[in-house]
């Protein structure tokens, strides 16, 4: 690093270059337009859309959210207008931003849906990457794709054949061994991994003895899940070579740094967007300050820089 120079916050995910490693996480940022009054969206490293499905999804019955100690549960259930309406009504605004656009997609019934979804997205050149959401806990399924290494490999492998875009696989923490799933996704051709999705959870109204959420249980997010996420990023980092996009309860630069040090190449901010819409930009500037103060010339030197005592 040149003495007076600024550190390089750029990060590379295969052929995709991000000017900085901070993204807004899927499901917490709508289609970005919702936040246009509150921040300069062009400063984001990337934006990940709310998950899109083939058909419109009305989502789950209310109440869909409730607060928990330092966190929240949601059971939104992937409410979205479907791929065609997404392309005709939401894409124009996102394209104009000029920042890498990552479209999150999910299949409701069968992985075959990914084929049609990719078919519709592949031609849109502004879409830099596809995030495969195979880890949403709100689909009322007995088992998620990302809860089985074989299923994960099959879906990632099939989608890999269909797209030349960067492929990011989003993993669930609700598994026995996340590294098995991570390695399966890597072997099947995923360019990067996003972890973690929400943790399955439940809250009960003890006065009425009913679940607090309309669909009984939901996904836990926010600072409460952060230590779980950091550990999983660290575990996965030690087993794979592709970049990790770390997320789970990041509130500020301090908590974002934990993820980088554990092994993340980039981070996604989720729940905090509801609380502090300026958080992503605060993390970008805080990260730059930290790198200057610690003489870290580029981000790759920070990723996985955890120091361990030798025993």
């Amino acid at each position: 690093m040149v003495r007076s120079g600024k550190p390089d916050l750029g990060v590379r995910i295969n052929k995709l270059n991000l000017k900085n490693p901070v993204m807004a996480a899927s499901g917490t940022f709508g289609y970005a337009e919702e936040f246009k009054d509150l921040m300069d969206l062009k400063k984001l490293g990337a934006v990940v859309t709310k998950t899109i499905t083939l058909k419109p999804r009305p989502g789950n019955p209310p109440p869909r959210i409730c607060e928990t100690p330092s966190g929240m549960l949601n059971s939104v259930g992937l409410e979205n207008p479907g791929i065609d309406a997404f392309i005709s009504t939401k894409l124009a605004f996102l394209k104009k931003l000029g920042i890498p656009l990552i479209v999150s997609i999910a299949a409701e019934e069968s992985p075959v849906e990914f084929e049609i979804l990719i078919g519709k997205l592949e031609a849109v050149k502004e879409i830099a990457a596809i995030e495969l959401n195979i880890s949403c806990p709100n689909l009322r399924k007995d088992k998620l794709v990302s809860q089985d290494a074989g299923d994960t490999a099959a879906v990632v492998g099939a989608v890999r054949k269909l797209t030349s875009k960067i492929l990011i696989t989003k993993l669930s923490p609700n598994v026995t061994c996340i590294t098995d799933i991570a390695m399966a996704a890597e072997d099947a051709g995923s360019d990067a991994l996003a972890l973690i999705n929400t943790l399955s959870g439940m809250r009960i109204d003890v006065r009425k003895r009913i679940p607090m959420l309309g669909s009984r249980s939901g996904g836990l997010s926010g600072p409460a899940v952060r230590p779980v996420a950091v550990k999983m990023v660290w575990d996965v980092y030690n087993k794979i070579k592709i970049p990790i996009i770390g997320m789970g309860g990041i509130m500020d630069v301090e908590s974002a740094l934990e993820f980088f040090i554990a092994g993340a190449s980039a981070v996604s901010l989720g729940t905090v967007n509801f609380v502090n819409p300026g958080a992503c930009l605060e993390v970008i500037s805080g990260l730059e300050r930290y790198m200057i103060n610690n003489r870290i010339p580029d981000l790759s030197r920070l990723t996985g820089s955890l120091k361990l005592c030798q025993d």
């Binding site: 499901g27 917490t28 940022f29 709508g30 919702e34 936040f35 509150l38 709310k50 009305p58 989502g59 019955p61 209310p62 109440p63 869909r64 959210i65 409730c66 607060e67 929240m72 949601n74 939104v76 409410e79 729940t271 967007n273 509801f274 819409p277």
Partner: peptide
């Protein structure tokens, strides 16, 4: 009134049932 997170129509947490489907209380 409904439990709410973002308040700006992004999280879709605060919906109510209407004749036009779920609508956000916040937006």
């Amino acid at each position: 009134e409904e439990y709410m997170a973002c308040g700006i129509g992004a999280c879709l947490g605060c919906v109510v049932s209407t004749r036009q489907g779920y609508k956000t209380v916040c937006k």
